[in-house]
Write a protein that binds this DNA or RNA. Structure first.
Lengths: 229, 229
DNA sequence: CGGCGCTTTGAGGGAATTCAAACTTAGTGG
DNA sequence: CCACTAAGTTTGAATTCCCTCAAAGCGCCG
């Protein structure tokens, strides 16, 4: 069983600058749990009992309405989530589910709020984190409103490549079905969009996406620092 | 010349709970300015010098990419804006422009950050405000992804009616052009969407929108507490 | 009255979805 | 190791959603 790596947690932006005392108090009541793939972690419309941090695995935030689904965010490891609901002590706006096996650290919501009120450094870290999540969501909104599906895909590929070290080969960490949802399109349309990007040197082999002509793809994608970060 | 109503500012959620001392310090350096219609207040990509609060008038946050525009938010009076950029001391992600004549209170960004670090009550208020803006943006994202344009319009009408006191008559505070942008559609499509809502008892007379059959409209709109707040 | 901007209407097209069917992949049990 | 199944992915055809461009109608102000 993997133990939570408290040193790694301590190094997170959210926990880095707080006092040792606050950190000890905060983590004393924290619990750690492991979840398999495709498990629902939290449900829409509930009030949060815990602040969660996935320190291993990938978590998807999504929402359901009228028989349709929309991905709100996909969280890489070490991102705290539902922070806003914890701070406001208000209902979640999304469901969260694991995309992979996931190790979660959960801090009682009340502990987090108490720590906020006692430790200014923590308060600032929370505000920073919230501001960042806000900015990310504004970016998503702009991405959604200002680009077509195929352009969103092209920019996603560029970003994924950069995150994986500019090797011009991207290995998908999850299925195309999930990728499609996170790009706001149907799996069928993702397939067609990928086919269309062939024109700009994008090849697909199973779970690998290869960029054969970076320049052409970038010209088509037309990335924007104020959308793609 | 209208003087800023410091009592009203003091009553805002953001300023309500801070100490008298912090409030005095914060507002000592604040400036007040008046702007006419359709003026650009801030530009994308710059770093904020001030935290702005519109205490009279309406401000639109929007963004431009590739010859297209997208409205990010329309702010009612007394909403502080660009708070996230001020806290992070990072670039704006959007442009802001006045939709009407607007009175602005502007607090130097560094003052705001200093106050944050000295006054825990203010820090908490900032975090609350940020969490709320984050939630609002998530709602927008869901609204955009999960509904068609005509459904967004139907829900917008229901909400506008509730805000104006359930009188079943809505008076537009701005032109249809702006409404279309804020709903993420072209003016032409808004016009067609309004025509389509005739089927559910919606009549348009110039700048007035009349709901003749609330039930039918609500049935079509299918509002959702986790999207529409 | 004339002009200007905003809104509506019309025609056509591109973007994205649905539904259905073929195909591929991965996992399971023999 | 192979066959079988179930799931994920691709392809095709039809449809809906929404946009563009162009022209006409409306409202407001000089």
């Amino acid at each position: 069983m993997l133990q939570p790596d408290w040193n790694a947690v301590r190094a997170l932006p959210l926990f880095r600058s707080m006092s040792e005392k606050t950190f000890t108090t905060l983590t004393a009541t924290a619990v750690q749990q492991s979840f398999p793939q495709h498990v629902e972690l939290i449900t829409e419309g509930n009030t949060p009992d815990f602040l969660h941090i996935a320190f291993q695995g990938t978590v998807e935030l999504f929402s359901v309405h009228n028989g349709h689904q929309a991905t709100v965010d996909i969280l890489r490891p070490m991102t705290p989530f539902i922070l806003a609901a914890v701070i406001r002590d208000d209902v979640y706006l999304s469901l969260a589910r694991t995309l992979t096996t996931t190790q979660l650290i959960s801090i009682p919501a009340q502990s987090a709020r108490d720590a906020f009120d006692r430790d200014l450094a923590f308060a600032r870290a929370i505000a920073d984190e919230l501001a960042e999540r806000y900015c990310d969501t504004v970016r998503s909104l702009k991405n959604e409103k200002l680009r077509t599906g195929t352009k969103r895909l092209a920019n996603w590929i560029l970003r994924a490549d950069a995150l994986q070290g500019n090797r011009r080969i991207i290995e998908l960490a999850f299925g195309k079905r999930t990728l499609a949802a996170s790009l706001g399109m149907t799996p069928e349309y993702l397939s067609r969009s990928l086919a269309r990007l062939t024109r700009y040197g994008v090849r697909v082999h199973g779970r690998d996406i290869v960029i054969e002509d970076f320049q052409a793809l970038e010209r088509f994608a037309n990335p924007n620092a104020l959308i793609d970060g």
